[in-house]
Design a binder for these strands. Sequence first.
DNA 1: GCCAACGTTGGC
DNA 2: GCCAACGTTGGC
Length: 182
Amino acid sequence: MRHWLMKTEPSVFSLDDLRRKGREGWDGVRNYEARNSMRAMRVGDPVLIYHSNAEAIGVAGLAEISREAHPDATAWDPANAHFDPRSTPERPLWDQVEVAFVRAFPQLVSRDDLQRIPAFSASLLWKRSRLSVIPLTDAEFAAVLAVAEGDQRARPERAAAVRIRSSGQGSGRGPSPKRASR
DNA sequence: GCCAACGTTGGC
DNA sequence: GCCAACGTTGGC
C-alpha cells in the first residue's frame, strides 16, 4: 500500500469541507508528475491532507483514496478555471482521483512540526515545493502519524498519559472511516 | 534541446 | 501583499 500527501488551500477546500462532504473528486491538478502519482493510487491508500497557503500551514488530518484515477472533466470545461483545451472527452489529458475523509488530527501537525521530524527530513515536500501530490515513504507517513497521534508537542505533561492509554488495544483513534464503496 | 520569459505556488 | 522558487512554454 502506498502513502500520499495532497496539498489543498483551506480557503478553497479544507479538511473540514471534506469531512462535511465525505468524499471529493480531487480535480484541477495540472502537473504531469502529480497526475502520474494519482494514476498510481489505489483504493484505500492513505492520504495526508496538507493545508497550504494558509494561516495554519501543515497536515490537518487523514483521508484515503476512494476511487482511482479517471478523467478530470473540468479540463474540457471552458468556464472552469483549470480549463485546458488540449484535453478532450475523446482524449483526456488530466485525471482526478476521489478522496474520502478519514479523520482530522486532534491538532494540526504544523510545517514547523514536520521540519522537526527526522524521518521526514528527506521528504519530497521540501525538495519539490511546488508539487501538490507527493508520494511518501512508509517511514515518512508513519512518523507524521506518530506525531499526530502521540501529540507530544504542545502538551508534554500529557504525553505519558497518552502513552499509557494507547498501550492498550483501544488506540484512542476516532470512529472507523466511512467505507469507500463503489 | 537550450534557455529566457512567463505564470503560479506557497511561505512569510 | 510580496516575492523567491520553480514548473512550463515557446522561440530559436
